Amino acid sequence: MPIAVLFSALLVLFAPWVVAGQRLAGKRLSGQDVARQSVAMDSSGTATVSLKAFDLATLQPIPAQFLLREQKTGRQTRRLSTTAELEIKLLFAVTDSLLLLVSAPGYQPRRESHWVDTLTSLNNQYSFWIFLAPDIQKKAPIAEVAEARFDNLKAGETIRLDRVYFDQSSYVLRSESYPQLDQLVAALKKNRNLKIEIAGHTDNVGNVRLNQYLSENRARVIANYLRSKGVASSRLVPKGYGPSRPLTDNDTEENRAQNRRVEFRVLEVPNE
């Protein structure tokens, strides 16, 4: 058989598969699509995205609304999680950047951007856990409770600043952090010779050097805030530890959230 005739026959034979692959690459798969196309499409060409919202203060999962926008197509999807089903799962067939807007009653809305790669991700599985900060205005009494922890401080004592918030992977201090920091300012002004170390910590995800840099700058930002409120620089020692001092294993997202923290340690107490 002539080579040209053989080549033409092969094109006719494989053309339907080529067309099917091109169609699948251009759209996101829905539930029925997956059932029909799972046989024809290898799993390496898809990615599963899991979405879950948490209370940043308690680290407990909460129901939330997820608004997703796919950057390439401009397509938008709105999904709601419930107390019965707190995790949402979506299947994607196209590598894309996703813009997420997550909101829940009584919490500050949060916007995040994530990259989803359908070809090179680990097992093509992504888990995006979004932590929402409580609305401070609706929970004002909580800030007053924290004041008692700043009384009768002892040398060597370490206290976590559990209502201090930063933008994700950033050292931009969020305004809802001010009430607790103002309580710390009051305690430092009450004890004029008190000296503290402000320590920033991260989890072990990502580049170690960048995590170290992030922890150092978060500690400096808090020290700068305290200085702006009249606390002398000589009483503040900002220090970043990166991922080197975890409170627990970094094996789950809940544990990693525990390790991402800012705290202060009492270095000197007058008349002790």
Rank of each mutant, 00 (worst) to 15 (best):
V205H: 08
V94G: 00
V116Q: 10
F7K: 05
D162M: 02
L86P: 01
G45W: 06
K154F: 01
L29F: 14
G74C: 02
P246D: 04
V19P: 05
Q76T: 11
D162C: 00
V34S: 07
I196M: 06
A64Q: 06
D249G: 04
L181E: 09
G156W: 15
T118E: 03
N123V: 10
D182P: 09
L210C: 01
A146D: 14
Q65F: 00
S169N: 11
V18I: 15
P141D: 09
K139E: 12
R69A: 13
W115Q: 12
V205K: 05
V145K: 15
S170R: 05
T118D: 01
F92R: 09
L98S: 04
L119N: 04
A93H: 11
R36E: 11
F14E: 01
R220Q: 12
A199K: 10
R110L: 11
V145T: 08
S50I: 14
P246Q: 05
R79T: 13
E147A: 14
Q183T: 01
K239W: 05
G200Q: 07
G31C: 03
V269Y: 13
N207H: 06
T120P: 00
S43I: 10
A15N: 06
T58H: 12
L132H: 03
T118C: 07
D117N: 14
A84F: 01
S175L: 13
D162G: 08
A40Y: 04
Q71V: 11
V18Y: 15
H201V: 14
A148H: 02
K190L: 07
L153W: 12
N224R: 10
G206A: 04
F166L: 02
V39M: 08
K139Q: 15
Q183N: 12
A148M: 03
K229S: 04
P16K: 08
R75F: 08
A140F: 02
A140Y: 09
